[in-house]
Amino acid sequence: MKSKLLSAKEAVEKVKDGDAIMVGGFLAGGHPEHLVNALLETNSAKDLTVISNDTGTKDLSIFQLVKSGRVKRIFASYIGSNPETGRLMMSGEAEVKLFPQGTLAEKIRSGGAGLGGVLTPVGLGTIVEEGKEKLEIQGKEYLLEMPLKANVAFIKADKADEAGNLIIRGSSRNFNIVMATAADYVIAEVNEIVPIGEIEPNHVNVPGVLVNAIVKVG
């Protein structure tokens, strides 16, 4: 089997002009800082779509990515922590689409799970419903939210084995698990790599079959 262990530079070469990339994390928790940095420093792909819960905070590499002029679209739930995303939205330099956080998670989950979308009551009666189909199911109204997929996902884990099985600790699971299902190429940034068999199957948060590249940091 071809080794999944790559340098950050090698792994992010996958990102091409016009790609959609998912970036895991919730604020600084579980954010793949080094992968985003490598994308900034070693890859010049532009016209990117970034899918992220919050587009990070000022001291994270994703802030610099948003600021780099290489991002033309952003899908997020909360951008109050990244004023640059707000600025791009107001000026129209990038198209910023905001979704309720649970809806964003479900759009990604349905993208990765082979579903045609999800029906949620969240957003009904608000501007979130604009342009979306409404369906009545068993007497209740729902909004149809379409699935979301990406070309590449950057996710962060604590530990990987060489097959890519991941352990993600604590509240860092956030969007990192669901994003691993919804991209053509999944890169995991990890703190530690161990041989296959060293991770107890009960402890695996993301099965290695979903992970294409493992990048060790630190």
Binding site: D54, Y78, G80, M90, G102, P121, V122
Partner: peptide, 12 residues
């Protein structure tokens, strides 16, 4: 326009 985060899901 900070975004709704989890607020819409929570109140519903």
């Amino acid at each position: 326009v900070p975004g709704m985060g989890g607020a819409m899901d929570l109140v519903v």
